[in-house]
Amino acid sequence: MDSRDITQSLARITAGDRQAIDLLFPAVYDELRRIAQRMMRREPANATLEATALVHEAYSALVDQTQARFESRAHFLSVASQALRRILIDAARRRSSLKRGGDRQRITLGGIHAGESESQKALDLLELDDRLRELQEDHPERARVVEMRFYGGMTHEEIAAVLGTTTRTVERYWAFARAWLFQQIEEGRSDPQRQRAPSSLQVVVS
């Protein structure tokens, strides 16, 4: 898929053709993964992978800038958010299965600890993903706001452009979705029965 094809599918998405997303998705996914890995290599220690920086880099790599307008850029970012979500979930799954293998011992070298960071303990990405799927069933648009903001680092204006609504609505959607997810995850924590079903670990995406 070359730059022209990408720009074309983007135009179709912007015009409301949801199927075109499936055409664009694989290219964006690959590009993001490539950029992310390069970033990790360049600066593994203090890699603060900025989602915003990532998707914008992918955008400038894939899309012919002269053709694109604000809306189509926003649509691209929304596809990138989906792709980024997928990348992160895939990585988290792999990591999770590695951990279950139990061969990761805490070894230090060069003053750096290979281990879990605080933020990881605080939030399980896989669980969040499951809950987000549940939210999607009843409130698909609100779930998309989470996807675009949390994974894609998009602004409320950009999200509003994709959803064809106002930023005020986006803010309301975000407030609700965040409260809903928080409530679900909190309840899940106090009730072990409701913790993530092991079946989702089985899915391996190569």
Binding site: A36, Q37, M39, M40, P44, A47, T48, L49, E50, A51, T52, L54, L84, R85, I87, L88, D90, A91, A92, R94, R95, L98, E116, S117, S119, Q120, L123, L125, F150, Y151, G153
Partner: peptide, 12 residues
């Protein structure tokens, strides 16, 4: 997700 991304990408 940026905060988690680096960890997850490192893993992958």
């Amino acid at each position: 997700a940026a905060a988690y991304a680096s960890q997850e990408m490192a893993g992958s």
